[in-house]
Design a protein around this nucleic acid. Structure first.
Lengths: 359, 359
DNA sequence: TTGTAAGCGTTATCAT
DNA sequence: ATGATAACGCTTACAA
């Protein structure tokens, strides 16, 4: 009653040699091998392993013993195929090599792991065939989170047309997708107000590419609003790559042409580069030029002068994205949600001198 | 001649409605839908898509048109099941949240993507069920790279008993696995020699847990060798977590008990923490106490004093690991390889004053 | 409680 | 050049 109905159904898994774990090299034990060794059907093995239905304790023991003996691990692809899901999340991010990336991924992976989901990571910037990579990723996961401008609107639409659940991180909301952002505009406004009122600067500039990132453009918007309210002159933001060298170059140009009294940068790396450029031009920071960043990376608190910046809850952004994606995957008819996580202004020395009235 | 022999073999894929991409929501087109629409067999569709055999140009066009029209993407799990491979690599890393992690992963992902392989990332430190997570990862990839002490020897052995190709990064070589390391001992020796001979320090200490990481223990070995040769007193390394706070605490304790003249730290974050602790205790760096780090993170060149450290080719470590794993996966009988990538001493101000003879 | 067998969507081997 | 069909290894109704 075992080799009875195996007609064309099961492959020739009749190799139930009692060799245990040290079976044939390169041969991975299948559920059939376990079933044979435990003298049960493959259905029972599956039930024991998945806990999907009650199994007689003794039978269970036998199965478990066989599993351990053979060192059996179910084939993930077979499971995925049968279940119709991957138990995996994708995370599509741009080239951000800084601490921002690492923290977000770490926060993400931590939660995903708790939820029993694997995490596939794909980077897009400076790579060819972005669309193909995104679609390939899509075919390996149950849903994904897109960071910033990792891909353009068309690809996002393509992903959505595949009915792939999406969570956008640091990206403007899109129909039918969740989105999570760190608060930008208000903190940028507060930062600018600090420069304008607490320090009395009347000439401020902004360094960062407002077209390259929604975060940056929101920061610019908040910054600009403060300038407007204070009736100060507004000059267009100076575009600039989100890294130290980009900051250095852009600042050099800007400072040679029409140096402002204060320079707000789209992130800390740009700001650190700008400080270098300023000092190279003989300007003292903050006495001749105030400089601020964004992110509060490790270098921000170790640089001299300490960098005034805005701290974002990077880890939380990641963990929340994981949680939301999971919920979307396991709830139907969930309306799109949008969250804005609070940020925190960190005043240090680079924006000017604070005697007693610290903050 | 189509519904003829479909007895129990193919599922009811006869839904060849000409609705194109806007088919039933939640329904993913299969290879059968494409075949039906293009009026060919699924085998031909597969051949066109995989390029595995010559196909008549006209037929090919029809198939491609159907694919585009339906927005068909092959099911990754079905492919993996049929091919017996995942086209994916795993990367198992400890909790390292610093720049080291990000850079290595970035270098890895870049190469893996070029090779058409996905990357799954799993973090182990501070997490329960490490072994299970590692084995789960193993079931989703064709091979993996293990960073540092992400998992212990037993798990590595378990992975190997599954005949999973492994590349070790920053881990002592293990039988039958490739391993890649950044050079440690010699640079640590050179660093110590610089402190001893160029600066004349006679009392040196080491901060870092030599049991927690093979990198750290190699650095300690090189450092110790220099002390031995110079016939200087050797005190055991002070164990310490690989982060800023760990460095601060450990340094505080050490400096209160028996402050050395120079303190070599296992990485930059520890060093930065130690500088903070020293200054809090009223010691000037480098005048009263010299401090060095390892890694050359961004903060190292922005801190004041600039941090003397050792630069590792983090990106290359990652990309080389990806390449090696890929080669191992696609070559049989490849003997285990071991590489040591060169590092570079970066002298800044934290180790002491350099007047003219600047390195 | 346990077994049987029908999918899951590919790839690849045969025929034709 | 193309078609039919047997794996691939699992999950899960449906039976017993």
């Amino acid at each position: 009653m075992k080799a009875l109905s195996w007609a064309g159904q099961a492959p020739d898994h009749s190799d139930s040699h009692g060799l245990g774990a040290a079976a044939a090299p390169g041969w991975e034990p299948t559920i059939y091998a376990v079933a044979a060794q435990a003298n049960v059907s493959i259905a029972t093995v599956s039930r024991v392993l998945r806990g999907s239905a009650p199994v007689n304790p003794e039978t269970r023991e036998r199965v478990l013993a066989a599993v351990a003996d053979l060192g059996y691990t179910p084939s993930r692809s077979a499971r995925s195929l049968a279940e119709g899901q991957h138990a995996a999340h994708g995370i599509l991010f741009p080239g951000l090599s800084g601490p921002y990336f690492a923290e977000v991924v770490l926060g993400y992976e931590e939660v995903a792991a708790e939820l029993g989901r694997s995490v596939l990571v794909v980077c897009t910037h400076g790579r060819p065939a972005v669309r193909e990579r995104a679609m390939d990723l899509a075919s390996r996961v149950d849903g994904m989170v897109v960071l910033g401008r990792a891909v353009d609107g068309e690809v996002i639409a393509a992903l959505q047309s595949k009915r792939l659940p999406l969570v956008l991180l640091g990206h403007d909301p899109v129909e039918e997708a969740d989105s999570i952002n760190a608060e930008n505009a208000d903190s940028a406004y507060a930062l600018a107000m600090h420069l304008i009122h607490d320090h009395g600067y009347r000439s401020l500039a902004f360094l960062g590419d407002t077209h390259g990132s929604s975060d940056t453009s929101q920061r610019w918007r908040g910054f600009r609003r403060a300038l407007l309210e204070a009736e100060l002159p507004i000059s267009e933001p100076t575009p600039c790559p989100l890294n130290e060298d980009g900051g250095r170059r852009a600042a050099e140009r800007l400072l040679r042409e029409q140096p402002p009294r204060a320079l707000a940068c789209a992130n800390d790396e740009i700001a650190l580069g700008a400080i270098g450029a300023a000092e190279a031009l003989g300007l003292r920071v903050p006495d001749d030029l105030a400089i601020t960043g964004w992110d509060d990376v490790m270098a921000a608190r170790h640089s001299r002068p300490g960098l005034t910046t805005v701290r974002q809850p990077m880890r939380e952004l990641g963990s929340m994205a994981a949680r939301w994606l999971h919920e979307r995957l396991n709830t139907n008819q969930l309306a799109p949600r949008h969250a804005v996580l609070p940020t925190h202004l960190v005043i240090r020395a680079s924006c000017g001198n604070h005697s007693e009235e610290d903050q």
